[in-house]
């Protein structure tokens, strides 16, 4: 597998870091090289938060990525900030529940996911990050759905209700990706 980079971006509190960590743990579980790099700085509540995950079969060089292959944006400020830097030919996942515009770039795949609505329908808007993660996994195939399921079980094993809900929305996000973008073999 070529190196794959994905950035998750949104408000502090939207589970951005967690989404990236779940992906990172899943990558490690599949025996891949992984680097998870958070944005850290003088941030404030309601400010922007983002993290980048690099997954590769080979030794990872820079954990800092100028143009990631995929960016998942959870809110409007992130849409504006990160839309222009997705690598040409890459993937731009937009949480359309909170972002009511679309990018006019034509050189990448834009994938709209109503993350908050899907999570809310399932019973808890806090699971938006897992919806988006599911959609990312479905769209990119960087890790297997089963691996992320395993990771969630490990992390949420004790909280049965939360686990059940998260597994459901993960699958829903994943399925939406397959429906919208079609089945892909690999990245």
């Amino acid at each position: 597998m070529e190196q794959y980079e994905v950035t998750f971006a949104g408000f502090g509190g939207q589970g951005i870091m967690t989404a990236g960590q779940l992906l990172a743990y899943s990558g490690i579980k599949e025996g891949k090289q992984v680097a998870w790099m958070p944005s850290y700085g003088p941030e404030m509540r309601g400010g922007t938060a983002y993290c980048t995950v690099v997954i590769s079969d080979k030794r990872i060089g820079s954990p800092v990525v100028t143009n990631p292959k995929c960016i998942c944006v959870f809110n409007r400020p992130s849409f504006d900030k990160f839309g222009p830097i997705v690598k040409p030919g890459g993937l731009f996942i937009v949480n359309s529940s909170l972002i009511n515009v679309v990018s006019d770039r034509k050189d990448f795949t834009q994938f709209l996911v109503p993350g908050n609505e899907m999570a809310l329908m399932a019973g808890n808007a806090k699971a938006t990050n897992v919806v988006i993660l599911g959609a990312f996994v479905g769209a990119s195939n960087v890790v297997k759905l089963e691996t992320v399921t395993e990771t969630l079980k490990e992390k949420l094993g004790k909280k049965k209700d939360m686990l059940e809900l998260n597994l459901r929305v993960l699958k829903e996000g994943y399925d939406l990706a397959l429906e919208t973008l079609g089945q892909k073999d690999s990245v």
């Binding site: 090289q33 992984v34 680097a35 998870w36 790099m37």
Partner: peptide, 10 residues
């Protein structure tokens, strides 16, 4: 540097 501290790797 700060990155070494904040970064997560296996």
């Amino acid at each position: 540097d700060g990155m070494i501290g904040q970064m997560m790797e296996a």
